[in-house]
Write a protein that binds this DNA or RNA. Structure first.
Lengths: 150, 150
DNA sequence: ATAAATTTTTGGTTGAACCTAACTTTTTAA
DNA sequence: TTAAAAAGTTAGGTTCAACCAAAAATTTAT
C-alpha cells in the first residue's frame, strides 16, 4: 500500500463522508476538515487520481476506483478495530479511542489488526456502528449465515 | 517532544548501544545500522546536538544531554511496553513484537502506554530483560520497597 | 610515518505538503 | 438572465526532512 500517511487521511475522510454517509463531497468540505488551503486539496485529489485511488473530475468531484475502495476499506478496518481494542481492553471512551486510533491506524500491521479482530470475535461494527470490513485472511471470505439473512 | 520519527529512531539506537550496552558508538556503527551514507549520520548527529538532545564532538562521538536522556527513555518506555502488550495479549513472539513495536512506539500516546503499564502491573523489564523506565504519572516517582532492597 | 579506515564538509537532490495570487467555473439570488 | 458570490483550479512558488556523492580532514593501525 504505497500511499503516504497524509494521503491515507484524505482517503479515509472522503470514503466515510461520501461513500458511507452519502454526502457529495467537494473541495471545500475537505479543505475545511483538514484546515488547508483549497489549492492543497485540489493537488491532493489530483495526486490520488494519478495514483489510481480516485477518479477526479475538475469542478465536479471524485469517485473511488476499485483499488481506492480496497485501500480505504483496509485503512478503516484498521482504524475501527483499533478503536475496539482501546475501548474494550483499555476502557477508552469512544471519542478518545477514535482520536488515538487515527494516529495509529496507518502504522499498524495487517497482522496486528487481524489479531485484534480474532480476539474480539471478528466484530461486525465499530463503536460508532460503522461496518468493520472483513479481511479474507482473517474473517473468511463469505458473510456468515446470520449476515445473509439480512 | 518535537523530534521527528527518524530522529527518534537514531536516539533509540544510540541510547541502547551506548548507554545500555556500553559500546562507544561511532558514525560507522550508526550508518551501518540504518543503512545510510556516513554523511547522513554526521548530519543527524549534528541536528540532534542542535536540538539539545546530544552533545556531539567532531571525530569523537556523542554524549546524551539530560534532556536527551529523558526523551530516549520515554521512547524506549513506549517501545518496551508495546512489546509486552503484543507478547502477552496477542501472543507475538519476541522478535516480531519488537519489530511491530518499532513501527508504533513513536506514534503511541503517553496515555495509551500508561494504560498498558497499569494493565500489566507496571512491569520492570521488557521481553529482552531491559529496563522499562518509569513514568511518574503512571508508576509513581519512587522505586517500590522491593526495588530498594535491591 | 604512511596507508587504510573513518568521519566531516560542501554542495547538492528528491519528494511531500503546503501556500499565495490570479484565474476559471459554477451557483445563487436580484 | 445576468452579475455577483462562492467554489474550485492553476501556476509558481516555499519549507523541511532525509538522503547522497565527492573531496577533504582526521584518526587508527601497520
Amino acid at each position: 500500500m504505497d500511499v503516504t500517511v497524509t494521503e491515507a487521511d484524505y482517503l479515509k475522510f472522503i470514503y466515510r463522508k461520501q461513500v458511507e454517509d452519502g454526502y457529495k463531497i467537494g473541495n471545500k468540505m475537505v479543505s475545511d476538515f483538514f484546515d488547508v488551503h483549497p489549492a492543497t486539496t485540489t493537488e491532493m485529489l489530483q495526486k490520488l487520481d494519478e495514483r489510481g485511488l480516485l477518479k477526479y473530475e475538475r469542478y465536479y468531484g471524485v469517485k473511488f476506483t476499485d483499488y481506492g475502495v480496497v485501500i480505504a476499506k483496509k485503512l478503516l478496518r484498521k482504524h475501527r478495530l483499533l478503536e475496539i481494542l482501546l475501548a474494550n481492553f483499555f476502557k477508552y471512551d469512544i471519542e478518545v479511542a477514535c482520536e488515538e486510533a487515527s494516529k495509529l491506524d496507518f502504522y499498524v500491521s495487517d497482522n496486528l489488526v487481524n489479531s485484534i479482530c480474532r480476539t474480539y470475535g471478528h466484530p461486525k461494527t465499530c463503536l460508532h456502528n460503522r461496518i468493520i470490513f472483513r479481511d479474507k485472511k482473517c474473517c473468511g471470505s463469505k458473510p456468515t449465515r446470520v449476515d445473509k439473512m439480512k
